[in-house]
Amino acid sequence: MQPRVAVLLAAFNGKQWLKEQIDSILLQEDVVVSLYINVDQSSDGTEDFIDQLSKEEPRIHKLPFGQHYGGAAPNFYHLIKNIDFSQYDFVALSDQDDIWLTKKLVTAIANLNKSNADAYSSNITAFWPNGKKLLINKAQEQVQWDFLFEAAGPGCTYVLTKKFAINLQKFILMHWDAVNRISLHDWLIYAYARANGYRWFIDPYSSLLYRQHANNQVGANVGLSAFLVRAKKVLNGWGLNQSLLIANAVGLENSPFVSIWDKGNRLGYLFLSKHFWQCRRRLKDKFLFFMACISLALLPPQKRHE
């Protein structure tokens, strides 16, 4: 029997890309797919487009229209909260504008089964309108505290076992207010898994084409402009504030490691700089993290960003 997979897709003003993305999901090989789409209130006809598709294709299920979420994370939290996972073997997340390779899901499932893991993510290949392509490598070795400072990779590569998805759903329901203060769902899901002893498999296989365009909420971390955007978020305290919100949500607020830097003072930043090797996976990111912690320790104290 082929594995049954619930795919959760968060959409917003995505009409121009959705057909290509949805086609690539429905063309997945050797799995039985059910696609659940939740649309953030849009102005480009996305709701009408999804409504028509759901009438033509029984594998597509739309959630009620009309709500405004204001970002991908609350949209995904709503999807995870409201879908019954009991009838599926696996749960996958999808953006609205990528193109999945036809063996994306079956490859993820094979690796989950082989490694006895609870959750999966993979590398991706970013592509631009001018035809440029670039492999984005997220498959570095996991380290002790990386989950508090970064995601496992783009959430659109995540595939979760049924057991993990149901427990994640319970966690989100129990911590709804705290969860909705966290701006990146893929980061939170990875942190919840690692903090609770679940096994996560990061695959060097590139499972999808990751579309880059002006409306990307996050996008690939490539080039000077992307670096500067992320650097600003680090230096104004946003990044570490999100780390603290995540640590609190997943029950690590009293961890000796977290309690040393949770006040956002110079000593805390210096402590993090000493542990930079255990806080990010990629070599370049380790040293950028170190420099960011030193910079925060030298800057005047700033009000935390929430």
Rank of each mutant, 00 (worst) to 15 (best):
V5S: 02
A6P: 09
L8Y: 08
L8D: 03
N13Y: 13
G14R: 04
G14P: 02
W17M: 02
K19D: 14
Q21Y: 10
I25H: 06
L27H: 15
Q28D: 09
E29A: 06
D30V: 13
D30C: 03
D30W: 09
V32F: 08
V32L: 15
V32D: 15
V32K: 12
S34T: 14
L35W: 05
V39I: 05
T46R: 09
F49H: 10
I50R: 10
K55R: 12
E57H: 11
R59K: 13
Q67T: 02
Q67C: 00
Y69H: 10
Y69D: 02
A72M: 05
A73M: 00
A73E: 07
P74R: 06
P74N: 03
P74H: 01
F76E: 01
K81V: 10
N82R: 01
N82H: 13
F85H: 00
F85V: 00
S86Q: 11
Q96K: 13
D97T: 00
D98A: 12
I99Y: 12
K103M: 13
V106K: 06
T107K: 08
A110R: 11
N113Y: 07
N113A: 07
K114W: 08
S115K: 12
S115T: 14
A117M: 03
D118V: 05
A119L: 12
T125K: 08
F127D: 15
W128Q: 03
P129H: 02
N130L: 09
K133V: 10
Q144C: 09
D146I: 03
L148K: 00
F149D: 01
E150C: 04
P154G: 11
V159W: 00
L160N: 07
L160H: 12
T161M: 05
K162E: 06
K163V: 15
A165G: 00
L168I: 05
L168K: 13
F171W: 06
F171V: 07
A178N: 08
N180G: 06
I182D: 09
W187D: 04
W187C: 02
L188S: 01
L188K: 02
L188F: 00
Y192G: 06
A193Q: 13
R194P: 00
I202D: 09
S206M: 08
L208W: 03
L209E: 13
L209C: 06
V218S: 10
A220H: 05
S225F: 07
L228M: 11
L228Y: 05
A231F: 12
A231C: 14
L235Q: 11
N236W: 11
L240H: 06
N241P: 15
S243W: 02
L245P: 00
A247V: 02
A247Q: 12
A247P: 08
E253N: 11
N254M: 03
P256F: 04
F257G: 13
V258N: 09
S259I: 15
S259V: 15
I260M: 08
D262I: 11
D262A: 10
G264F: 10
N265M: 01
L267N: 14
G268T: 06
F271K: 05
L272G: 05
S273V: 03
K274P: 11
W277E: 11
L283C: 08
C293W: 10
L298A: 11
L298D: 10
L299I: 14
P300G: 05
Q302P: 01
